[in-house]
Structure formats: C-alpha cells, structure tokens
C-alpha cells in the first residue's frame, strides 16, 4: 500500500495552488524515495518538476512503485476542503483506481475522507540534462512576484539581463517601457532579503509574462526564489518546499524569429 502523511496540509494546499494554473492533470510517481511529478503544460512551453522526499513526510510508506494520474483541478478542490491546521494523509492500495485524502483536525475530533478517481494518462517524459548555468540569481520571492506583475502591464514578455552587478528586468509595449534593476546585496545579514548573483557569463533572455505569472504562485512556499539562466536555453525557476523538497519550473525562452 501507499500512505503519506503530512501534519501540515497547508504545504500541500500551497503546492496545488502553485501548479493548478499550468496543469490540468499530472502523473504522481510514488516510490520509496518520495513523490515526483514531471508535467508540461498543453503548449509544451513550460514544465513543472515537483519533488517531495519521503523523509520530509511525518509518515511515509510505499510498498511498490505507483504511477497515479490525477486531475489537478479535482485535487485542488479536495484540498480546499482541508482546515488550515488539519493533518493530511494520502492513501492508495496497490494497483489503485482511486486515491483517498484523509483530513484530521488537530484535536482529532473531525475526520474527513475524500476519494478521488485516478485517470489513465499518456505521459511524455522529458530528459532534462544536469547543466551548469551562466547565471544563478537568488532573490526574495515576493520581489520576483511584484516585478512579474508590474512589468506584465507593459508587454507580453519580460527580458532578463544578468551581469555580475545584478539583474535587470525590462518590458516594452504600445504604451511605453519599464525596467527594474536589482543590485546584488552587499551584506547578506538577512538571508530572506538577500539578492545573490553568481555569474560566469552575462545572459540576456526573454520570457512570456503569462507563464512567469503562473510560476510566482509558488511564492507562498518559500521566501526565496532561484533563477538559473544560460543564453538560449530554458529558464529554471526554483522554490524550496520547506525541508521536504522543491518545485522547479522550466520555461522555454522567446527566440529571434
């Protein structure tokens, strides 16, 4: 059988909020090491890679590897039924046709069970090579959210230009243009507020606002976001999920026609 328990259902709620605008359905691969999801949006422009390690769960048991196709919108609806302080347990039997979500209140006086049918899915798996990136920038996730939102008003895409001094985000359109420069923070006293630039080569890349504004929905998961960039390759936008894992978004750049 498969059973995974998290004392804080809020973590799983936030994870669903972070993927539901990009994915309608996804396969959850469950094994001894944890739960993994790799799924592209319908247009194959972005990819979500979610990793939740088994040791991050409060209880975890997976007797045999399972691939469970799930409707993200249905899962999201179910998780909205969990109280903020509830514990969540996911349970499935071997060769399952459904998965059960069990929510338990902190004082254990309320127990709610929701069963969700699994779906058969053809899945396309992409081999993503381990790459060293020309620029890796760490910055507060709230700042990144704000920049994507603000610059989206000016155009359909945002250009990221990174040098050793910092990173510049810019957008332009019919009404005008805007750019925001962030300098690397001199002292990293406050880790959550730090902007750290690790640059081997300067990069300049352009990305669609629509996808970036989906990625920033992961902001509530982590105070910092990490952007990994090389010229003419997909962006990696990573948010840590506490001590349990991470969510990575890959986004194909806009390239010269």
């Amino acid at each position: 059988m498969f059973e995974a328990r998290l004392t804080q259902s809020a973590i799983l709620k936030k994870v669903l909020d972070a993927v539901k605008d990009l994915l309608s359905e996804a396969t959850f691969e469950c094994s001894d090491s944890g739960i993994q999801v790799q799924a592209m949006d319908n247009a194959h422009v972005s990819l979500v890679s979610l990793n939740l390690r088994s040791d991050g769960f409060d209880k975890y048991r997976c007797d045999r590897n399972l691939s469970m196709g799930m409707s993200i919108s249905c899962m999201s609806k179910i998780l909205r039924c969990a109280g903020a302080e509830d514990t969540v347990t996911l349970r499935a039997w071997d060769s399952p046709e459904s998965i059960v979500f069990i929510f338990e209140s902190p004082n254990k006086d309320k127990l709610a069970e929701y069963e969700m049918k699994l779906i058969n899915m053809d899945q396309e798996h992409l081999g993503i090579p381990e790459t060293s990136y020309s620029c890796v920038v760490k910055m507060p996730s709230a700042e990144f959210t704000r920049i994507c939102r603000d610059l989206s008003q000016f155009g359909e895409s945002i250009t990221f230009a990174c040098t050793k001094e910092g990173i510049k985000f810019s957008a332009s359109g019919d009404y005008g243009s805007a750019n925001i420069k962030l300098a690397q923070t001199a002292d990293a006293d406050n880790e959550e507020e730090a902007i750290i630039v690790n640059m081997q080569e300067p990069v300049k890349l352009t990305f669609s606002c629509r996808y970036l504004n989906c990625f920033v929905k992961a902001g509530p998961l982590c105070n910092q976001v990490q952007l990994s960039m090389s010229d003419d390759v997909p962006l990696v936008c990573e948010y840590k999920i506490g001590d349990i894992g991470h969510i990575r978004y890959y986004l194909a750049p806009k390239i010269d026609d």
């Binding site: 592209m40 247009a43 194959h44 422009v45 972005s46 990819l47 396309e124 798996h125 992409l126 081999g127 993503i128 090579p129 895409s157 352009t206 669609s208 390759v233 997909p234 890959y250 194909a252 750049p253 806009k254 390239i255 010269d256 026609d257």
Partner: peptide, 14 residues
Amino acid sequence: KKKQSTLTDFFKKS
C-alpha cells in the same frame, strides 16, 4: 520580433 520556443526544442523525450 521574437517567437515562443517550446521545451521539446531543448529537451529530449525519454
């Protein structure tokens, strides 16, 4: 003018 690329331009299907 820039056009949107897709991930399958960069990553191989496995």
